[in-house]
Design a protein around this nucleic acid. Structure first.
Lengths: 205, 205
DNA sequence: CAAAGAAGTGAATCATGGTTCACTTATTAA
DNA sequence: TTAATAAGTGAACCATGATTCACTTCTTTG
């Protein structure tokens, strides 16, 4: 008999798969999902187009995985910015919310192409599904902070899921919409923070 | 000599064009832009697919015109709801803003498929361009109201274009996002109104 | 080295949906 | 009625981009 899976073959296989993912990420980062056609991904990763299908059932899955990866980074960054406020003790919900908005906005403005790709670029249904999760992840972060703020008496009583979803939409539109060309990022961010704090009914203690 | 354009021929031509547009509108209203393929539009309007190209240079133009038409209706409804508050004399900016949000939301919740199509459905670049105008039109309405509110001392001082864009995003996400399945429309709308008023820093006189 | 299993190849194929065009039908004026 | 011009037809065509597959190359074990 003959062939057997071994550490080496497995590693090589995993490596190719990873190369494909990294290549796709790079293309998306530079030119959005439109730039990540099957043949472009193959070329970018130095393999033939057929190889993609040895590692992914179809292109949508590959792209969905790219989306998920990028998403997780973004959401984690925002969640972390939020939680960092926990560690340094009794920080207010307003501080946490501010950090979340600032982080979200900063990252979106630095990587505009990626932000557009994640937030608004037309994608196929399989990837759109991933996008819903993504938005939901943000919504949950905001929801938690808003709840905390209400408990602490910082924010006015309100329907948290609704507010949270609205905040996500607010940021998405502000950062990817026509304002994206605005070059004074700091001004935009400060305005957004003020706006968000008003929206949740923040009243300094 | 021979053929000459006459009232009758012109009318007939215009009629066919209109039939195509109406058919496309119907399809979009029922199933979004995805349902308005060239052949579907042709079938729905009872002509052959080639006929489309006697009246439009390409499908994108036809769809763009459908988009524009639907858009204008929506924007007009919101603008009117806003202005209706003018007529009945010294209405506040808060009243106008409330009317705008309520109208926008009510219409979106009644025609969910159309709302999704106009706000979020993936479309080709030519139509996406139309969508930007559409969002901008709303933004302008909100901008005017916010400015008025600031002048009247109802709303806190703020960067109007930013707030206006954010409000558009807020409504879009709330009404087309995961909350759309919420069945208590009134509750959603009231929450949105409260949220928007807080966002603009409304303080009852 | 030979056999066996798997990864890699890339031109050919397929799927989708818009677009064309040779042809037919309709309308008009002489 | 006939010439002239345009609208209507729909099967064929085309463009794009994903997917397949017969074939080659690689890796492993006996």
């Amino acid at each position: 008999m003959a062939y057997r899976e071994t550490e080496h073959t497995l590693a090589k296989k995993a490596d190719t798969r990873l190369r494909l993912l990294k290549a796709a990420r790079r293309l998306v980062q530079q030119g959005g999902f439109a730039a990540a056609s099957a043949s472009a991904v193959a070329k970018e990763s130095g393999v033939a187009s057929g190889t993609i299908y040895r590692h992914f059932p179809n292109k949508s899955e590959l792209v969905a995985e790219v989306f998920r990866y990028a998403t997780e980074r973004e959401v984690a960054a925002v969640a972390q910015a939020c939680d960092a406020q926990f560690l340094s003790e009794n920080k207010t919900a307003a501080d946490k919310l501010t950090a979340a908005v600032e982080t979200f906005a900063q990252r979106a403005l630095l990587g505009k192409t990626l932000a557009y790709a994640l937030i608004a670029e037309p994608v196929d249904p399989r990837v759109e599904q991933e996008r819903l999760r993504y938005r939901f992840a943000y919504t949950e972060i905001f929801e938690d902070v808003i709840e905390l703020g209400i408990q602490r008496g910082e924010f006015v009583a309100q329907n948290c899921p609704i507010t949270a979803a609205a905040l996500v939409g607010m940021l998405a539109e502000s950062l990817v919409g026509p304002l994206k060309q605005k070059n004074d990022h700091d001004d935009l961010i400060h305005n957004l923070i003020a706006l968000v704090l008003r929206a949740v009914g923040f009243k300094p203690l």
